[in-house]
Design a protein around this nucleic acid. Structure first.
Lengths: 205, 205
DNA sequence: ACCTTTATCTTGACACCGACAAGATGCAGG
DNA sequence: CCTGCATCTTGTCGGTGTCAAGATAAAGGT
């Protein structure tokens, strides 16, 4: 009697449930993100992730070491999507530096609201290892993007701190549901209000 | 043979280790805050808190229900200290509304830096029950303080969102160690830089 | 004074969790 | 074919939160 229920191959090539999964690493990351979204960072469970991916409870260890390793990889991936969310806003904004700056801020907030748990993992958790090369590089890239944009708008180091803090504060508070007056606005009005808010970080304008 | 090691009364009246502790609730809150500061929100353990307070692992349940209850009470206490930190800054600041507003912002940041874990529990965690009367009232009081101050300075609802977001963003990012350029400044220079930063949220000034 | 009620705290149990060790399985290269 | 290795499984350990049951002390009524 084989202790493993499913050895026979399936019809679809991208199937799970083979002993050697094929792309378990990616599957675990996807499962982890889903778990994170459903249960939050603080109730995150490695065994639950494994179960969701249809794999034994110790399988993640081989790919990520421990729970922190998985969360580290997830946070790194998160920073890439974070930049993608900003790029999405920048693509439909006027090309002048100031508009691009505001667009990046809106993307920052979009990301925080659409992926609350991931956002908190990246900015409000000690569990990921921020010294890990992959995560360190990813977060560095996000900071660099901000730095470049502020420089293009003729801003200084202080302006970086101002814009970043303001965008981050709005994003974090809204993600926590503490700026309901803003959240209740219609999307268009909301964007306008947020844009006006973000512009305050640059006193010159 | 009694299973309990210490039944005899002690010399000091405020001693622990009696079967009926006397003020276990407060002792647990203090132990919980110490645990929180040492191990962070995410590694917080109810049994560890009980051990630190010198009490059995199920003792907290009677006073707080479950782990969430203890964290809820802790967060509520945190909001009181949060207001106290702001009052400390306001007391040494000029009495004009604008200076008071900046002082409150500095107190906000002071609190986040001196009690990182507690700050994260209050603003970046889902574990406390924010619908609980005690916590709800405490956090409401903090918001009301901000609202009153902004109104005194002739500000609107948007100004509340702006100042709050900026102060919160600075506090959260600094608590995460992500604004090192500001953190490295000497205290006096740091306060000056932060004050200038906070003033940006009011475009008129 | 004694007895009962109630609040407080302890012990014990259960399921779940993260980490480790050992074994099963399949792939790849000799 | 068969040997080596990466991959995945099972089993186990200590730790954790929560519940149930019991022990203890304080309070209150008779």
């Amino acid at each position: 009697m084989s202790p493993y229920p499913c050895h026979m191959p399936r019809t679809t090539p991208a199937d799970d449930r083979k002993y050697h999964h094929g792309d378990l690493r990616a599957a675990l990351l996807a499962a982890a993100e889903a778990e994170l979204a459903e249960r939050g960072v603080e109730a995150f469970s490695l065994r639950q992730v494994a179960k969701r991916a249809g794999v034994s409870h110790a399988a993640p260890a081989h790919h990520f070491g421990d729970a922190g390793g998985l969360l580290t990889a997830l946070a790194a991936e998160g920073f890439h999507r974070f930049l993608a969310a900003q790029a999405l806003r920048e693509a439909v904004a006027p090309p002048d530096p100031m508009s691009q700056l505001v667009a990046a801020g809106l993307g920052y907030i979009d990301f925080a609201l659409s992926r609350r748990a991931l956002f908190r993992l990246m900015f409000g958790s000690d569990r990921p290892d921020f010294a890990h090369p992959a995560l360190s590089a990813a977060s560095e890239a996000a900071y660099l993007h901000l730095e470049t944009q502020v420089a293009a708008a003729g801003g200084s180091l202080v302006d970086i701190a101002a814009l970043w803090s303001l965008a981050h504060g709005i994003a974090d508070l809204m993600a926590a549901g503490r700026l309901q007056s803003l959240q209740d606005l219609a999307p268009a009005d909301r964007d306008a209000a947020l844009s006006a808010l973000l512009l305050r970080s640059f006193p010159a304008s």
